[in-house]
Amino acid sequence: MKANGLLSASQSALMAVVGRLMGIIDVPLRYLQRKTGQTGMAAFFLAPNMAIFTVFVLVPFVINFVYSLTGGSAIFLSERSFVGAEQYSEIFACGNYLDPNSCKQDVFWIAAGNTAAFVVLQVSLMIVAALITALILNREIIGRGFWRAVFFFPVLLSPVVTGLIWRWIFQRQGVLNGVMQGLGLEPHDWLTERNSAFFASIGVSIWAHVGFYTLILLAGLQAIPKDLYEAAQMDGTSRQRVFWRITLPLLMPNLIVVLVLALIKAVQIFDEAFVLTHGGPGTSTMYLVQYIYETGFASELRNPGLAAAASILMGAVLVVLTLVQMAASRRNEKKGAR
């Protein structure tokens, strides 16, 4: 009680200081308003956000293209030499387009291949898991709020924490091998064997994100009118039929949103996979963002131009995915209007 009183006292003191401060700010702003007029103040309110936005998003976005046309290891654009499309032809210099090892930038193509495989497996498995979870959470179960929270918990964890939790579980002397030994199975070097490290990175990222997509799908399920189900029940429709004929078609708009969002996120896989395996063993869990990061900043022979070119190629994939999403959601809107 006492602590509460203290808190609210210090809180109101803080509010008084902030209020006074805002009063002082108001004086020059009133003067400004007399100059610009009422609507002119809109520019003032927009200015800070747009300034930060321009400097840290728009300008980098535009000069990224210039970057990808220059060479050398210097950071500042003025110290870089113009090389034209050389970085792009460097990436596409391959002996045989079906074999990444024949390319000059073999690591880029290995990373691209890993990312593609990761995207296909992670997204498809995760959407199935999210759909099942959402369908279950949409049933009349005891403690629905609690169960919804359960699947949401890992979504909030930082990728670094997620990566470390699972590294601790998967390590040679970890609890997973302990359980396997207890069951009479052979312990396995999960993170130092190529295939299991790759599948571990997929599993961990599904674990971390499935709750997010479950929530979106659950919101979609709850928006389906109940009377449709009641009508189906009166007609004695079987459960399978209800699912395929009512639930799935009406959930389709949400499923498409979830699909594209998950694809866009999966293409950018980095944090948790990086902490889990650091791209290893070898390059078996090296994904595109890690390639860009290492080419641009981390490696001895850093090449920001090449990293910029690679990031533009990745950005192009993301733009295509976003356009697909927009087209899909427009088609859905049209359907809804009909």
Partner: peptide, 16 residues
Amino acid sequence: TLMVPLAVIMVPLYSV
């Protein structure tokens, strides 16, 4: 700009 993730602009952002 919702579509411009950090991963795409990190090289020029670093120089900025």
